[in-house]
Computed example of a mutant assay.
Amino acid sequence: MKWPQSILAVIFALFTLTNPVHAEKTKAPEKSVQAKIPSSVLNVAKENTYPNPTQDMPYLQPSEFTKDLLKSSNVKIDNPNLIKMFNESAINKTPFSIGLRATIFLGEWPLSYESSETAPNWEYQKINTNYFDNRGGKKNYQIHYVQESQKVIKGGLTAKIAKSEDVKKMMLLKAMENTKLPLSWDTIVGAGTKKDNVYNIAPKRLGYLYGYAPAVNEKGKVTYGEVYLVLKGLKRMIIVKNVTSQGIGAWIPVQDHVSFGFISTDRPR
């Protein structure tokens, strides 16, 4: 029997109570291995003249009600926004629900993201060059890193995809879990940011100290589906229909880190 949309909405409203559940922080799975940071990559969080906000992505924990729904689903669901919606709802089991039969369409959602590769690029984008000409000098000249101008480093998805904000959140969580790096979709290195590490330029040489913003290349697969909430008497379940998958990639900058490359040469570059 098909129910008119307005009646379904009333039924869902009658049996739904708001029950906010806050996100809880949990540790990422122990199987993930932290990315090995090269010695040429330095943390500039303390020296950065632009205070980037800390990216603290909580691992959303499902409520008991949500756990029951997720177990009933025929497709894996780990979209934090969808889990949050379930967390904020509860359907009471009352005597009035014994004869209830209803199927409520909750929309098409990106359900889960499966990572296939997480690879750092320590020289994702050049952001600075410090230079000194010591060809007329008689002894070594020492230079160190000084950020000449403010640089904004932006990441993003490598292709257009439906519900991109949900997908980006899942990809960021997975990349952070895989690398243990402080990742963000955009980060800023402020003008005047300095580091005390010294680089020597010999006489009759020119020295170039390049600064690069590192980023992580995240690749994987997103699974989409139409989500239905099915009510059958006292039973509540999730059914997903028209399931599809799509490959996707993204570049995600590493926050407050700079990769350095020093070159000494007898000719201008």
Rank of each mutant, 00 (worst) to 15 (best):
I161R: 13
K221Y: 02
K232H: 03
R101D: 15
P268Y: 03
I153E: 03
E64V: 07
S39I: 08
T187S: 14
T26A: 02
Q142Y: 06
M85C: 04
W3A: 08
Y59F: 05
T187Q: 05
Q255M: 11
L42N: 06
R135E: 14
D256S: 06
I161L: 12
G207D: 11
M170E: 12
S149W: 01
T193H: 07
Y210W: 10
T49K: 03
E148N: 11
G155W: 00
V33E: 12
I98A: 14
P58H: 00
E114Q: 14
L111A: 11
S39Q: 09
V44E: 08
T103A: 14
P38T: 10
T49H: 05
I77A: 05
D186H: 08
T129A: 08
V167Q: 09
K174V: 05
R205L: 06
A35E: 11
K138S: 13
N217V: 12
G99A: 13
E24W: 00
S63A: 01
A35P: 02
G155Y: 06
E30C: 00
K27M: 11
E226M: 10
K36W: 04
N130G: 02
V146Y: 02
H257V: 03
V152Q: 13
V230K: 12
K163Q: 09
K25I: 03
K67H: 00
I263N: 11
P182K: 08
V75L: 02
M171P: 07
V222L: 09
V41A: 01
L181V: 02
V227Y: 08
K138E: 03
P120T: 00
D256I: 09
I248S: 04
N128I: 08
A202G: 05
L111E: 08
L42G: 05
Q147C: 07
A175D: 10
L183N: 02
P120Y: 01
K84C: 00
Y113F: 15
E226T: 06
T244V: 06
T18H: 10
P62A: 00
A9P: 01
D166I: 02
I91A: 13
A35L: 05
I238L: 15
K139T: 12
H257M: 13
P95C: 07
L173Y: 02
H22C: 01
V189A: 01
I143C: 11
S97Q: 02
P80T: 04
S245V: 08
K76A: 15
P268S: 09
K67E: 13
I263Y: 11
G207A: 13
Q34S: 15
Y50D: 06
I37M: 08
K36F: 06
Q246C: 07
E165D: 15
I77L: 01
Q55T: 14
I104Q: 04
E218I: 09
P38E: 11
M57E: 13
I127N: 01
W185P: 06
E47D: 11
